[in-house]
Design a protein around this nucleic acid. Structure first.
Lengths: 193, 193
DNA sequence: CAGCCTGTATACCGATTGGTATAATTGCTA
DNA sequence: TAGCAATTATACCAATCGGTATACAGGCTG
């Protein structure tokens, strides 16, 4: 059972660094110190490995976002909590979330996109619901909840990407509370505030 | 010289659909109706093919953005022009820009990221300069021009991605003027406006 | 007609791809 | 201690990877 974990960890690191398609099964098992049949015993295929890898990391982030999206405060507070939860979750497990992003932006017909798309959609729905519920506070949304959700997640993803670029030590990746507040403030009140 | 063009076009389509690493040289030349030595005669390597491909498409988008960023109007107008130029450029050449995005979000150590990063940086700089120049209008930026640029480009990228998802015919990809104005308005004045 | 440069095809290279048949090892249970 | 199930290694598979040596066309110039 320890080999299984080692394979998952090594695969995550390699997929993040080089991309899913560019990493061979051989490379993974060598880094993990096992042999191929061990990998195929646990995961069945390279695709199965990716699926299990995503499943095991997906839940934590979703749970954080769901908890942050609770409708027990005003929009400013909820959006701040969401951004904070997102940055916390992403910086606690940076390789995973950056891999998610790379898979989400990869070719539509690629294995990676097909596997990751339903997951990203679930994150996205959380945002949409937050804005939909906020119609009391924001007035009739006229369908703009989707536009807001796209914009909000786009900003968060982009800031995360930017923070990760040119940083070789991902473990020190962090987005400060001050920056988070500034980002959310800009989203809510615009650039003139 | 016609084979050269055919190779470039087929490579772009395949790279967009499946991702750079998942597409073999053999697949490209078969689709283009040529043989491998022809590809290597023109481009030297698979990497060389990607570089030439990016170079031939990069200029048009950059030119549009630079023209739109001219400092001859207020921020609202400039940002609208930028968004319009971005969506026009991206929907006129959707495979190219979506491929750029996929390469930009791919693993840091991947060939694709290394090649595309300097180009994306040049787009990004255009946004940064726009916000930096706008300090008269927006007051002291305190370095927030980078935050604005990240947010703005993140929103545009995300909206483009979203518009392209679940659309099999990319040629009909379009983002309306109304939507563009709404997106820019939200960015400038927030969600309460 | 000889020579040359551009462009293209046949056929090949070693290395690596994802994946597996088989057997051995392990610890647990009957 | 015999046997069973879980786990792992050796050694292999056909197919594909990126890339190339060689030859041969075609047009152009001497």
């Amino acid at each position: 059972m320890e080999n299984r974990k080692s394979i998952l960890n090594c695969a995550l690191q390699l997929f993040y660094q080089k991309g899913y398609d560019a990493v061979g099964v051989q490379e993974i098992v060598e880094k993990a110190g096992v042999t191929k049949p061990t990998l195929y015993y646990y995961f069945g295929s390279k695709r199965g490995l990716l699926e299990k890898l995503l499943q095991e990391h997906f839940g934590k982030m979703e749970e954080k976002l769901v908890r942050a999206s609770a409708y027990d405060a005003g929009i400013p507070e909820i959006l701040y909590r969401l951004a904070r939860a997102f940055f916390d979750g992403a910086t606690a497990d940076p390789e995973f979330y950056l891999m998610i992003l790379s898979l989400f932006y990869s070719g539509r017909q690629s294995e990676g996109f097909q596997i990751v798309y339903p997951m990203v959609k679930r994150y996205y729905r959380i945002y949409v619901e937050v804005f939909a519920r906020a119609s009391e506070e924001l007035g009739n949304m006229h369908g703009r909840q989707e536009q807001f959700a796209i914009g909000f997640s786009g900003i968060l993803d982009h800031h995360l990407m930017h923070a990760a670029t040119n940083r070789d030590d991902l473990s020190k990746l962090h987005i400060s509370d001050e920056e988070t507040r500034s980002i959310v403030k800009q989203f809510m009140y615009g650039i003139y505030s």
